[in-house]
Design a protein around this nucleic acid. Structure first.
Length: 661
RNA sequence: GCCGCUUUAGCUCAGUCGGUAGAGCACAUCAUUCGUAAUGAUGGGGUCAGAGGUUCGAAUCCUCUAAGCGGCACCA
């Protein structure tokens, strides 16, 4: 007999060969029905997996939501694969995991790729398989035998994969009924009928490279979202819809902030409203860097290719650079082809080399360090076309970029104080964040010792700032550093839980070396400074995009392009409305007046949709009393107050957070 | 760059079987002076993304190009 201990401390004796399902049945029919998997000695396994000895057992039911969701999504992926192979014979299966909100499966289709139009039929077939309540049965199988089976079945991707698993390893396949199986580690639900046929939806198709490598075959990926029940699915679809309403591209158009067009694709046309937000951010950042003893500079947009060669960008980054010939073209030659030998220039993709060139002017002493050089640096990068996305990924952008030149022994303190500065900034905008350390990538400059040292310093600095904790989502990301330095990364969490990588600080010894930056030390000798690359917003474009989505367009008053609109009810009080507007303007409020011959309902609607924070309505009563009726965005009530009081209130709200008492 | 889809008025979109382009909003003019999410009437506005092809005839079918969207890959 086996001794099976349960979470409540009790122990059950079970015959050899029995399974978690047998224990569930022994406890009661209700539990037997509710159980979907088992945790045996901490490991999640099938209900039908026989015990191999005495064990601690915890039965998993749909109340264990995290496990249940993952199991269900994994099963949905299998059902999807089975459905596709049944509808499209000859399609090869490859790989299909669960995701944060559902699942996907990658197929190598026969003939053509799948399209959205295929989804309804596949969904219907999936529902049929679920309704058929097919038992999911695990079978252990020896590796070479499975490879032979996959080859015989024409499943070359599966065979390739199995062939890379260790020789002689026992693998497992899961059978769905008697007519379909897939290689899988498991575990799975006992049968397809445990899935709710109304709790999933196929959402889109896309291409995906086999094993994520663009040199490999392009597969056809089908995405779905999957849940435990219909209610959860519907709640998820509502969340998607809400997220769609925050889309900065849509809000940017509605609020007349900016536009993009084909003739300058990947570059932003900032409209007057959008640029007001930009200017407010720029002013905020200037106050921050002035207070932190940075020196602001402005450097050339275009530099000679030889300079980029020396910095290493020509070798490592040229694919992403806009390169132009350095010659005055003969007017007659200016046509589709520019021929002849040309020296090359390139638009800067980064500001760092230019900042080193400023550092190099004149002799620097150790007394000058740390020297913090800041620039609102406009960079151009020729990004892969498929990567462009609204304000989030553009080809021309402006970074809040700075480079701190310092001695080795100043690194930890500089990084620590940067952490404090970044913390202050993100809190001013209402974000929480996580910090990650991106470690050396494969494609890199510099020695192993240098990377060891740089990575260790950043770890120390984060520890000194007390940020290497779970609270700050501390994690290390192997292989994700820049080609010249490891990076600390700040990942913001927005109002609906999405994360955005914005800020970074990187400790770099490569560029000072390549561009021969040096300072005179206390010993009178020449020394190499370390260069810390750092940004907080990342880029103005992207940061504004994130702000728009975070606030769903309802920017805080200090950032709102138009902070208040004065709207008279009858034209008789236009004069008073003008007076109100002019007093607000004199008080530094970004105000507009809406004197159009429209009903107040119309004006309320229009300015609400435009997300103006405060609408100041004035009628005969207000004009007589010298008051205003304030309607604040998102509220239906009105507040009546004397004009002077309203001005004080608006001034308070319009004060940037760093200037508040 | 790769896979799929899309592109019609300033915006959102309709346009059947290939027969010569429509709505709402916006805009303009006129009327209306109104108390918190759309006042009414009238009017102007289109090389149907671009190029080529099939056809008596193309927004519609085919090819190419460009851009956009969703992913993949990329992301200092």
């Amino acid at each position: 007999m086996l001794k099976i201990s349960l979470p409540d401390g009790s122990v059950r004796e079970m015959p050899k060969g029995s399974t978690p399902a047998d224990v569930a049945a022994a406890i009661g029919p209700g539990l037997a029905k509710a159980a979907i998997a088992a945790r045996v000695d901490g490991e999640l396994v099938d209900l039908s997996r026989p015990f191999t000895g005495d064990a601690a057992l915890a039965l998993v039911t749909s109340r264990d939501e995290a496990e249940a969701l993952d199991l269900a999504r994994h099963d949905f992926a299998h059902v999807l694969a089975e459905a596709v192979q049944s509808l499209f014979p000859g399609t090869q299966i490859t790989f299909g995991p669960s995701t944060d909100d559902g699942f996907y499966y990658d197929f190598a289709p026969k003939g053509r790729q799948f399209t959205d139009d295929d989804l309804p039929a596949i969904e219907a077939e999936m529902r049929r398989i679920i309704s058929a309540d097919k038992p999911l049965r695990r079978e252990a199988i020896e590796r070479d035998e499975l490879i032979a089976q996959w080859r015989a079945a024409g499943e070359s991707f599966k065979a390739e994969w199995a062939a890379e698993l260790p020789q002689g390893e026992e693998l497992s396949v899961y059978h769905s009924g008697n007519d379909w199986y897939d290689m899988c580690r498991g575990p799975h639900l006992p049968s397809t009928g445990k899935l709710d046929p109304a709790a999933f939806k196929l959402t889109r198709v896309s291409g995906a490279y086999w094993r994520g490598d663009q040199n490999n075959a392009m597969l056809s990926r089908i995405y779905g979202t999957g849940w435990l029940n219909k209610k959860q699915l519907e709640a998820h679809l509502v969340r998607l819809e809400e997220a769609g309403k925050r889309d900065h591209r849509k809000l940017g158009q509605e609020m007349d902030l900016f536009h993009l067009q084909a003739e300058a694709h990947g570059s932003v046309f900032w409209h007057p409203n959008g640029f007001k937000v930009w200017r407010e951010l720029e002013a905020y950042m200037r106050r921050a860097i002035d207070a932190a003893d940075y020196k602001e500079v402005k450097t050339p947009q275009i530099m000679d290719a030889r300079q980029w060669e020396q910095s290493g960008h020509w070798g490592k980054y040229r694919e992403n650079m806009f390169v132009i010939p350095d010659e005055v073209p003969n007017v007659d030659d200016v046509g589709p082809v520019i021929s002849g030998e040309a020296d090359w220039m390139a638009l800067k993709p980064m500001n760092c080399p230019a900042h080193v060139l400023i550092f190099r002017q004149g002799i620097k002493s150790y007394r000058d360090l740390p020297l913090r050089i800041y620039e609102n640096g406009c960079c151009h990068r020729n990004e892969p076309h498929g990567a462009l996305h609204g304000l989030m990924r553009v080809r021309q952008f402006t970074q809040d970029d700075a480079h701190i030149f310092c001695r080795e022994d100043q690194i930890v303190e500089e990084v620590r104080s940067f952490c404090a500065l970044a913390d202050r900034v993100y809190k001013d905008f209402g974000f929480t964040y996580a910090i990650k350390l991106a470690l050396r990538p494969e494609n890199r400059f510099g020695s192993e010792e240098m990377w060891d040292q740089a990575e260790t310093e950043l770890r120390h600095a984060v520890a000194a700032a007390g940020l290497n904790t779970a609270e700050y989502g501390w994690a290390e990301l192997p292989g994700e550093g820049a080609f010249y330095a490891p990076k600390l990364e700040w990942h913001l969490t927005d109002a609906i839980g999405r994360t955005w990588q914005v800020g970074t600080i990187q400790s770099d010894r490569v560029l000072p070396e390549r561009l021969d930056a040096s300072y005179v030390g206390e010993d009178g000798g020449k020394h190499r400074p370390v260069m810390l690359h750092r940004a907080i917003f990342g880029s103005y474009e992207r940061f504004i995009g994130i702000l728009i989505e975070h606030f769903a367009g309802k920017l805080p008053v200090w950032l709102a392009p138009v902070q208040a609109v004065v709207a008279p009810i009858v034209s008789e009080v236009d004069g008073y409305a003008r007076e109100v507007a002019s007093q607000l303007k004199a008080a530094g409020i970004r105000v507009e007046s809406d004197l159009r011959n429209e009903k107040i309902n119309y004006k309320v609607r229009e300015h609400s949709l435009a997300k103006v924070p405060h609408l100041l309505v004035v009628g005969k009563r207000e004009a007589e009393e010298g008051t205003v009726a304030i309607r604040t965005l998102g509220e239906e009530r009105q507040r009546f107050m004397p004009l002077a009081e309203a001005i004080t209130m608006l001034q308070g709200e319009a004060t940037p957070p760093d200037l508040r008492a």
